[in-house]
């Protein structure tokens, strides 16, 4: 899932200052699961903003709230059409993708990021998420025993551990596992250490086309969308 983290309240208050009527908009998918922008967080945030506003005494924002199933998908945004007439800005608690789809769908509506989109990851334990993939576009998990060297090694290197690893941890922190030690152990367990002995050439960092675009393979195969 895409993991985000709520921005500090003070930053959000600075952002919303120019706008009178705000819709705090949650996302029912990743942002809900990672506890940054689901229905509950939308309502918490609005309460916090109201309390802060009452304390400050000189702000008069009107705050409404709504949560769509998925902000990154146009088909779930129709219910917003009737709401945008009564507001001056959307405070979006979705990942940056969701925010941009909202901005494209409502060209006249300012969209403010209420969260920082941080990484793609998985839950470690309740309330803790760990980065697991950087969408490098060339997945090599087959070669590395299902452990991503790009995100789980601080340097994202491909040919084995650096010399800094100690006690199975990364040179930058005693709290972080060294990705390459994990990979070694896993490949050893699988009887596939020869995969680590192979040489892996430099990564392809080509950024063009940017933004990247994927055209459905199924459509290419049937000749649709393939002009």
């Amino acid at each position: 899932m895409i993991v985000s983290e709520r921005k500090p309240l003070a930053e959000i208050r600075r952002m919303i200052a120019p706008y009178q009527r705000l819709l705090t908009l949650g996302c029912g998918t990743c942002a809900t699961v990672c506890g940054a922008g689901g229905e509950r967080e939308v309502s918490f945030l609005n309460s916090a903003l109201r309390v802060a506003q009452a304390k400050s005494g000189n702000e008069t924002h009107t705050l409404s709230e709504y949560t769509v199933k998925r902000q990154c998908d146009l088909e779930f945004l129709d219910p917003l059409v009737e709401k945008v007439g009564d507001i001056d800005a959307i405070l979006a608690l979705s990942c940056g993708i969701g925010m941009q789809v909202i901005a494209e769908r409502f060209p006249d509506m300012p969209v403010l990021p209420g969260v920082n989109t941080s990484f793609m990851g998985a839950v470690d334990e309740y309330g803790v998420w760990d980065e697991r993939c950087a969408a490098c576009g060339d997945c090599r998990l087959e070669e590395t025993g299902g452990i991503c060297p790009i995100t789980r090694c601080t340097k994202g290197i491909l040919n084995g551990p650096c010399a800094g690893t100690k006690d199975g941890k990364c040179e930058v922190s005693k709290d972080m596992d060294c990705g390459w030690i994990l990979i070694y152990k896993r490949l050893e367990g699988l009887g596939q250490l020869e995969k680590m002995r192979r040489y892996y050439p430099p990564r392809n960092f080509r950024t063009i086309p940017r933004p990247k675009r994927i055209i459905s393979q199924a459509n290419i195969d049937t000749g649709e969308d393939n002009d």
Partner: peptide
């Protein structure tokens, strides 16, 4: 070494290559 052990911790780590490459 990692950028993080040094005195410019917010710099972009490059690592376009590793030592073997």
């Amino acid at each position: 070494d990692s950028i993080d052990v040094g005195d410019h911790k917010e710099a972009k780590p490059v690592f376009d290559l590793d030592s073997v490459q």
